[in-house]
Design a protein around this nucleic acid. Sequence first.
DNA 1: TTGTGTTTTATTGCCTCC
DNA 2: GGAGGCAATAAAACACAA
Length: 266
Amino acid sequence: MESGRIFFDPSFNGNMSFLGKRDSVFRGAKTVMNMEETSKRRPFFTTVDELYDEEYYDEQLPEKKRRLTPEQAHLLEKSFEEENKLEPDRKTQLAAKLGLQPRQVAVWFQNRRARWKTKQLERDYDQLKSSYDSLAANYDSILKENDKLKAELLSLTEKLLPKEPAVEPAEYHKPSPQPVGAPPTKVEDRLSTGSDGSAVVDDDSPQLLDSGDSYFPDDKYDHVCEAAVDGVNSEEDDGSEGGGSYFSDVFAATEPQEPVGWFIWS
DNA sequence: TTGTGTTTTATTGCCTCC
DNA sequence: GGAGGCAATAAAACACAA
């Protein structure tokens, strides 16, 4: 406390908020206060002499809001850090120590919890946003990598494929009907997934197979998928193996049933 | 000085718990 | 039913630019 100045005791001049939270003693009092009364506002802190000199208290005016001293605020902050809930005993002790009404201490804690909650929400939002930004960046880079690999694949395929007879291409691209249950013999049969189409295999490119697991033979992209899963949706952990399906809309989900001809991951 | 935006203190109503 | 918590809100106090 500052020397020479004393804390203004709210109970001294008519603040009856300590009577209880349901007591609306001063409900509407402020709106009733006219300009003349308003002009009599006094500072929160005053000297002892001033306290006893003024006729202020004789008028029993409704209490005005008083700011806490830095010391009071500091002590309340410290107490809040220890425990943000206020048991009755602690409330009484704090009130006595600070020269406040217990009700004021309770109100301060209430408002402090509200402020803490707001800050916490802001922190949570920032955290989620940065997670989202990170995931979005990963997603974009994976899409680009995917495009790049597709192009590379196409280029290599064109180099490797033998010159085909004039008749073959038409036959090659037109799947012949298969009896139900017949073992798949053609590559294109394995590629029909019923989905909108593979993101990897182009309609007009030589038919290659991909899957979430086999498309990246080494573990090159594992960290990307894991990063995508981590901290975002833990339910995904048991929904798929290896996290590969997290980008199922990027990678075609067709599972290879057997290595395809000359194009084998090993 | 004044207008305006922000922070702090306090109230009210509703809800839950015992 | 009373006590205490929370959300919403009012209003005083404060900060600050113009």
